[in-house]
């Protein structure tokens, strides 16, 4: 039977991908940022997940204003890195698990989440940067990916309650899958950042830290935070953090936090990272 064994939360700042791609992670400037992932990289090499259900948002790269799915699931066999305006990142194509994706889609839709099904799409830094942070620069990625894409670019993003509930539905779907798979769920994006207007550059370490503190056992409380509070407290783009609740919902009631990292700034953004193991 398939089992969700762990969850990972991480920011997906594009600059981090760039620094990895040009081999600068060990410089004096970047070491303090990337060393926060040393634990996770070793841990995941032992854990060897077969599949990662990776929750992220596109940033006007693979998708434009023509179509804006609120929740979507990739059901393809593979996904190529998008050209974000300066050439595609030099990372391997992402391998899908189409059979598992379709299973999750069917189960989750029947549980009341009308996901958009996507068979062909490119993936931007929202998905590929977390892969690089966890796995470095392999020839081929060591696991398959089920992309869950969330709209956080056009207001309104889905509510925290819907995100948490979607995570729970994904958990149910995976528990009913026959394949004997070790599955992780990752929530990406955030934390504090605002890329626009006179208030650009806002960083709220206190709010971000409280969010991380509550994520292990007060997720129902976090789910009640409205999008306006994310924007007011952590910036317009800080509202991406709501996606971490999909990850948390998929982990079941009891989790154990085994690692955390927080760093300000990565360019305009507060970097947050957390690792949970499931306990049942």
């Amino acid at each position: 039977m398939a089992k969700i064994t762990a969850g990972v939360g991480t920011s997906h700042v594009p600059l981090l991908g760039r620094i990895i791609d040009i081999n600068q992670t060990d410089t004096e400037e970047w070491r303090p940022v990337f060393s926060g992932y040393d634990f996770t990289r070793q841990w995941i090499a032992n854990e060897k997940p077969d599949v990662v259900v990776l929750v992220y948002n596109d940033h006007a790269n693979a998708f434009d204003m023509k179509m804006i799915p609120t929740f979507a699931i990739g059901c393809g066999e593979s996904y190529h890195p998008a050209d974000e305006g300066y050439g595609a990142r030099p990372v391997p194509p992402v391998k899908g698990d189409a059979e598992l994706s379709w299973h999750i889609a069917q189960s989750v839709i029947q549980q009341g989440f009308d996901l958009t099904i996507i068979n062909e799409m490119e993936v931007d830094h929202g998905l590929t940067v977390p892969m690089s942070l966890m796995f470095g620069q392999p020839e081929a990625w060591p696991c398959k990916v089920v992309p869950i894409m969330v709209n956080t670019v056009v207001y309104p993003a889905p509510s925290g309650e819907r995100c948490l509930a979607l995570g729970k539905a994904i958990r149910k779907a995976i528990e009913s899958y026959d394949g004997d798979l070790n599955i992780q769920v990752w929530g990406t994006g955030g934390m504090s950042h605002q890329l626009l207007g006179a208030r650009a550059g806002i960083i709220n370490r206190e709010w971000d830290t409280a969010f991380l503190d509550k994520l292990s056992d007060k997720q129902e409380e976090l789910a009640k935070i409205p999008q306006t509070e994310y924007i007011r407290e952590t910036g317009t783009e800080g509202s991406e953090t709501v996606m971490w609740l999909i990850m948390r919902g998929a982990l079941g009631d009891n989790v154990k936090e085994i690692h955390r990292h927080y760093h300000v700034p990565i360019s305009n953004t507060a970097l947050g990272h957390i690792v949970f193991e499931t306990k049942d």
Binding site: S192, R199, G201, R232, V264
Partner: peptide
Amino acid sequence: MTDMSTEEYMDMMKKGGRSP
């Protein structure tokens, strides 16, 4: 988009960003 120069803005970010 801010009332700062690029240098001032970057400097603010390095010092922990704009406070809420």
